[in-house]
Amino acid sequence: MTTIKEVRAEIEKIDHEIIELIHKRVDLAEKVLESKQKEGMQITDKGQNHVVLGRAVDAATEKNLDTSSVKEIFEILIRMSIERQHELSGEGNLP
């Protein structure tokens, strides 16, 4: 039988993995920005944002997760990436 302490330790490990994945995702904003600048694209790409959100909702549906909550999480991730791109381009005010 698993104790609550063991379950919480597993949750903590997963939380750290999630943070690491968010960090990796935000770090990719620099490569995305470089590509967008080369192609003369704007930082905000509503079409791609729609694709990402659709993909997240589809994956959440497959896993039987609350799709509206997953969509909110991905909206935050998209916003973090856009903010990072603005900051890297000199337009933002984030650290």
Results as ranks from 00 to 15, higher is better:
51 V>E: 08
66 D>P: 10
66 D>M: 09
19 I>M: 13
79 R>L: 15
68 S>T: 11
48 Q>M: 10
7 V>G: 00
69 S>N: 12
10 E>S: 08
20 E>V: 05
40 G>I: 03
44 T>C: 07
83 E>P: 00
48 Q>P: 00
41 M>G: 00
43 I>C: 05
23 H>L: 09
63 K>I: 08
72 E>Q: 01
87 E>T: 15
45 D>H: 01
3 T>K: 08
41 M>E: 05
39 E>M: 12
21 L>V: 11
11 I>G: 05
76 I>G: 06
42 Q>T: 14
85 Q>S: 10
49 N>M: 07
62 E>S: 06
2 T>N: 10
22 I>N: 04
64 N>Y: 14
62 E>F: 06
54 G>D: 01
75 E>M: 05
65 L>F: 07
11 I>Y: 12
56 A>C: 09
9 A>V: 03
40 G>C: 02
35 S>Q: 10
64 N>C: 13
62 E>K: 10
83 E>S: 06
81 S>L: 01
23 H>C: 08
26 V>R: 06
53 L>S: 00
45 D>E: 07
64 N>R: 15
81 S>D: 09
2 T>D: 10
73 I>K: 06
42 Q>H: 10
81 S>M: 06
6 E>D: 12
62 E>H: 06
10 E>R: 09
2 T>W: 12
39 E>G: 04
28 L>E: 13
17 E>N: 09
13 K>W: 01
15 D>Y: 06
30 E>H: 13
78 I>R: 03
60 A>W: 03
62 E>C: 02
52 V>D: 03
